[in-house]
């Protein structure tokens, strides 16, 4: 815990505690992102802070008996009644976070993101420059999904996977990872949590059927693929012109080779991998294991038959 973090926190803590009155210790620690122990240490510093003069009446008062009972009561600090302006770092972190929310929210909430940013900009003056764009399907479908999640009902999706399907799912969360939006939902067919890319959801139809209570799914993160059953690791060597795949897909390792790049990928869906190979075409130099290449080549031969 550095001093500058502590001073910055204290400057916000003093107005916060005065505004709230009797503040809950646990909740306050949570809002300020510190442990309860650290928060009590902060209060011990404040106890020695106050108006120039340093007489007992000049110092901030903290009721430590109340602190023992989990309540913070602070007095004699009217001189610090408002927080400081944002630092450029805080402003930019907040803008990026808000913009990320706007990219996956329903239309009204996206609107709220932009009006909140405008108000922040007005209060603060020059606000930092940052923007976010995610691939998260249509706002209208997200609105329908959010409504279904709130109403706790089963929905039917029309989903453009390798093959179009109409799974019945219990929607739970809308998440993003690496700039793409996903629906995390319980698949009634698979009896398991699954993720659906939002930009591949073609339609959402809510059913009147209530979704049963379930233990919430594991958080969705960059490592979700690794935790999924049936995932295989393949290495693909590509020409330098296809080095971009290491930037676009979650890769375990990418290294330069005399002919280009070798990239280790996790593959959950063989059809997805074949589509990648077909897209890359003759930029694919080698695949390990070798047999992972065969289905894509068979598909290419089949496709060529259409043009014969």
């Amino acid at each position: 815990m550095t001093t500058s973090n502590q001073v910055s926190r204290l400057l916000a803590l003093v107005p916060y505690l005065q505004r709230v009155g009797d503040a809950d210790l646990t909740e306050t620690a949570n809002y300020f992102g510190v442990t309860k122990k650290q928060l009590v240490a902060d209060l011990n510093v404040l106890w020695f802070c106050g108006l120039p003069g340093g007489l007992p009446d000049d110092l901030i008062e903290v009721d430590f008996d109340a602190v023992d009972e989990g309540v913070i009561r602070l007095g004699n600090a009217d001189f610090l009644s408002r927080p400081m302006r944002f630092t450029p770092d805080e402003a930019m972190s907040l803008i990026v976070a808000l913009e990320s929310i706007g990219e996956v929210a329903d239309p009204a909430s996206s609107q709220a993101v932009y009006s909140a940013l405008a108000k922040l900009g007005q209060a603060q003056g020059a606000f930092a420059s940052a923007a976010v764009a995610a691939q998260a399907g249509s706002a209208d479908l997200r609105e329908r999904l959010l409504t279904a999640i709130e109403a706790k009902v089963v929905v039917r999706l029309r989903y453009a996977g390798a093959q179009e399907s109409t799974p019945e799912v219990e929607p739970a969360r809308i998440v993003t990872s690496d700039g793409y939006g996903y629906l995390q939902a319980w698949s009634r067919e698979r009896n398991a949590w699954r993720v659906y890319r939002l930009d591949r959801i073609l339609d959402v139809t809510a059913t009147p059927e209530p979704a049963p209570e379930r233990k919430p799914p594991e958080p969705f993160g960059p490592d979700w693929l690794e935790r999924r059953a049936g995932v295989v690791e393949v290495e693909i060597e590509v020409a330098e012109s296809a080095a971009w795949i290491a930037e676009y897909y979650p890769v375990r390792e990418a290294r330069k080779t005399p002919a280009g790049r070798a990239v280790r990928l996790l593959v959950a869906d063989p059809a997805w991998f074949s589509a990648l190979l077909l897209r890359l075409g003759d930029q694919v130099l080698a695949v390990d294991p070798d047999e992972a290449l065969a289905p894509a080549k068979a598909l290419a031969v089949e496709a060529l038959a259409h043009y014969a």
Partner: peptide
């Protein structure tokens, strides 16, 4: 830290129905 400043300024953020949204940025 920015949100703590807003709370100190009398703002009470509350996700409400958006709690089922989990955008992440890495």
């Amino acid at each position: 830290s920015a949100l703590a400043k807003l709370r100190a300024a009398g703002v009470d953020p509350d996700p409400g129905r958006l709690a089922s949204l989990a955008p992440r940025i890495g």
